[in-house]
Amino acid sequence: MEAERGSTEPTAQPAAASAAAVSAVLGDDDLLREILLRLAFPTTLVRAALVSRRWLRHASDPAFLRRFRRLHPPALLGFYLRELGAWAPRFVPVSRAPELATAIRRAGAAEGQFFISDCRNGRLLVTDFDPTACRHAMLSPLRPARGKAVLPPAPKRNLIWFFLLEKAAAGDDDGAVAVQMLPLGTTKAKLQVDLLTSGSGAWVVHRTAVIDLPETLPPIAYMLPPVGGKIYSLTKSGHILLLDMAAAESCLLQLPDRVSTKNFTLSCGEEGSVLFLIHAEGYLLSIWQLPTTSGDANDWVLVHAKVHVREACSRRENVMVLAVDDNLEFVFLWLRSSAVLMHMHLQSRSEKVYDELKVRDGRFLDINPFMMVWPPVFPALRDDDNLDGRSLTLV
């Protein structure tokens, strides 16, 4: 009997000591925040927040979320791809992380015949090819319960572009903005620019300006979402047109000295404080940036030079720049000769080739990278709520 009693004590004591150690660690707010910072994805962070109100308080704290974002930027789930003649885009997943499987499945479930006008923060702004009318709508694939939010009918004017708001909240359904342009006068060297926002079933003029153009309004290939009252457009002639609504001025930006071809794309990034230019020549990439608040509209700075695209180099091919994500982490490229679509992660220089997509012509591709929602959506609690996670849908 003595031997039996003695045999149980060595296992009971370490177990108690281990439980005490865990309690001491998780009971320390500083250590708990450091542990939560090690979670790789916002989805995992939201699940951890369901443990208790104390965990939720730390996980949803704005200062903590800023640290979390610096360590773990919103992940690229995949991209929507539409080729010339297709009535609907298809979703191509990029991430294979098990923690993001639900989000990827929902992103791929977006159905309908539509053209994507803008894509950011887990939402799509689409031109919906309804059988009876052409209308604009907002989709939230990661939150399917929201369904499709149809926007008010567009103003009956030409030269209109639609975007999602820069700083719209993750659950904001009234998050669309439109840029309307109306050439004035017989020479069309003067332009009325209206910035409209959607809400309460109508488009409302938020800001307007009459701007003198440096020349007759050139045909615009595409436009970036408005940033702080500034609108950057790429013309079909390969020039960058800047419309400054606050100053009621415009100018054609000079390209960086070493950008000698039209093989580039533009992005204002997620924060909108910098205009990026991503240029390809042969199998090399270069990335330039221009502060959107700079007084010198041509003060370009080279941030990445001679980035080798290994796949193109091995095939002895030139690359064509197609698109970038909001975080400027991934650049999507097309290999001209073999008609292959690929992307590169700029920080690690890792590459992925999509031979299975069989892209016919990259010049007519429409690519929209699709990111995770940020900030993460935490549960809104009442005093009598319990945090067990059973009634919460997580993405």
Rank of each mutant, 00 (worst) to 15 (best):
Ile287His: 02
Ile287Arg: 05
Trp288Lys: 08
Trp288Pro: 04
Trp288His: 13
Trp288Thr: 04
Gln289Pro: 01
Gln289Ile: 07
Leu290Tyr: 08
Leu290Thr: 10
Thr292Phe: 09
Thr292Lys: 11
Thr292Val: 15
Thr293Asn: 06
Thr293Ile: 00
Thr293Gly: 06
Thr293Lys: 01
Ser294Leu: 07
Ser294Lys: 08
Ser294Phe: 05
Ser294Arg: 10
Gly295Cys: 09
Gly295Ile: 03
Gly295His: 09
Asp296Asn: 13
Asp296Phe: 06
Ala297Arg: 15
Ala297Asn: 15
Ala297Glu: 14
Ala297Met: 12
Asn298Gly: 04
Asp299Tyr: 07
Asp299Val: 01
Asp299Ser: 14
Trp300Leu: 09
Trp300Arg: 11
Trp300Cys: 11
Trp300Tyr: 11
Trp300Phe: 13
Val301Asn: 14
Val301Gln: 14
Leu302Gln: 07
Leu302Lys: 07
Leu302Glu: 14
Leu302Thr: 04
Val303Phe: 05
Val303Thr: 11
Val303His: 01
His304Pro: 02
His304Asp: 12
Ala305Glu: 15
Lys306Thr: 11
Lys306Gly: 06
Val307Cys: 14
Val307Asn: 08
Val307Ile: 15
Val307Ser: 05
His308Thr: 11
His308Gln: 13
His308Tyr: 06
Val309Ala: 06
Val309Trp: 04
Arg310Cys: 15
Arg310Phe: 13
Arg310Asp: 15
Glu311Ser: 15
Glu311Ile: 09
Glu311Gln: 15
Ala312Glu: 08
Ala312Lys: 11
Ala312Arg: 10
Cys313His: 12
Cys313Thr: 05
Cys313Trp: 09
Cys313Phe: 13
Cys313Glu: 13
Ser314Phe: 03
Ser314Ala: 05
Ser314Arg: 08
Ser314Ile: 02
Arg315Lys: 12
Arg315Val: 06
Arg315Ser: 06
Arg315Ile: 03
Arg316Cys: 13
Glu317Asn: 02
Glu317Cys: 02
Glu317Tyr: 02
Asn318Ile: 04
Val319His: 01
Met320Glu: 09
Val321Phe: 04
Val321Pro: 09
Leu322Thr: 03
Leu322Ser: 02
Ala323Glu: 12
Ala323Trp: 03
Val324Phe: 07
Val324Gly: 05
Val324Ser: 15
Val324Tyr: 04
Val324Trp: 09
Val324Pro: 09
Asp325Met: 03
Asp326Lys: 07
Asp326His: 11
Asn327Cys: 05
Asn327Ser: 08
Glu329Ser: 14
Val331Arg: 07
Val331Leu: 07
Phe332His: 11
Leu333Glu: 01
Leu333Tyr: 01
Leu333Phe: 03
Trp334Pro: 00
Trp334Val: 00
Trp334Ser: 00
Leu335Met: 12
Leu335Asp: 03
Arg336Asn: 11
Arg336Ser: 10
Arg336Leu: 14
Arg336Ala: 10
Ser337Cys: 02
Ser337Val: 04
Ser338Phe: 05
Ala339Met: 04
Val340Lys: 04
Val340Tyr: 00
Val340Gly: 00
Val340Gln: 06
Leu341Gly: 02
Leu341Glu: 01
Leu341Arg: 00
Met342Asn: 00
His343Cys: 12
Met344Ala: 00
Met344Trp: 00
Met344Ile: 06
Leu346Pro: 02
Gln347Ser: 04
Ser348Thr: 15
Ser348Phe: 09
Ser348Met: 15
Arg349His: 11
Arg349Asn: 05
Arg349Cys: 07
Ser350Val: 03
Ser350Arg: 13
Ser350Gln: 13
Glu351Val: 04
Lys352Phe: 14
Val353Thr: 12
Val353Leu: 07
Val353Met: 08
Tyr354Gln: 11
Tyr354Asn: 12
